[in-house]
Simulated assay, not measured.
Amino acid sequence: MLLLLSSCASVPDLPSGNSFPAPPAPDYDLTANWAALPGMDDYADRTPGDSLQDLQYRAAADVFFVHPTIYTDVRKDNNTWNAALTDDALNRDVDESTILNQASIFNAAGKVYAPRYRQAHISVFYDEGESVKQRALDTAYQDVLAAFDYYLTHYHNGRPIILAAHSQGTLHAERLLRDRFEGKALGEKLVAAYLVGMPIDREAFRTIPVCTGAEETGCFVSWRTYRDDFEPGPGQDDPAVAVVNPLTWTKATDRAPDSLNRGGILYNYEAGPIPGLVWAEIRGAALFTNKPSFFGDILFRTKNYHVADYNFFWMNVRDNAKQRVDAYLGSEPPYVE
Rank of each mutant, 00 (worst) to 15 (best):
D54A: 06
C219P: 09
R135M: 04
H166P: 01
D77N: 15
R224K: 12
L266Q: 13
P333R: 10
D45W: 00
A60P: 02
F20M: 08
G169D: 08
K189Y: 12
D319A: 01
K322Y: 01
V325D: 02
D228F: 06
G49W: 01
L14V: 08
Y43L: 10
W279V: 02
A147L: 11
V63T: 05
W34L: 12
P26A: 08
G187E: 07
C219L: 12
S293V: 15
E215T: 09
S331L: 10
V307M: 08
Y267A: 13
F230P: 00
T212D: 00
E215M: 01
T250E: 11
Y269E: 13
R324C: 02
E182Y: 07
D87I: 12
T86V: 04
G183I: 08
I208F: 04
S10R: 15
G213Y: 00
P273F: 00
E203M: 05
Y113I: 08
L137T: 08
L163F: 06
D73H: 07
R46D: 12
Y126Q: 13
T217Y: 00
E130A: 14
F294M: 14
S222E: 01
V336C: 01
N157I: 05
N18G: 15
A147Y: 14
Y150L: 02
T153K: 11
E281G: 02
L152V: 09
F181R: 14
F64I: 10
A60E: 13
K291R: 15
Y150E: 04
D138E: 13
N268E: 15
L52F: 10
Y71H: 11
G235F: 07
E332R: 11
L145Y: 15
A120W: 10
I122C: 15
G213M: 00
T253E: 12
L137D: 06
A164Q: 02
S104F: 03
A165L: 01
R180K: 05
Y267G: 08
A84Y: 04
V307T: 12
K184P: 03
F220M: 08
G284A: 13
N245L: 05
F312E: 09
E188P: 03
G197P: 01
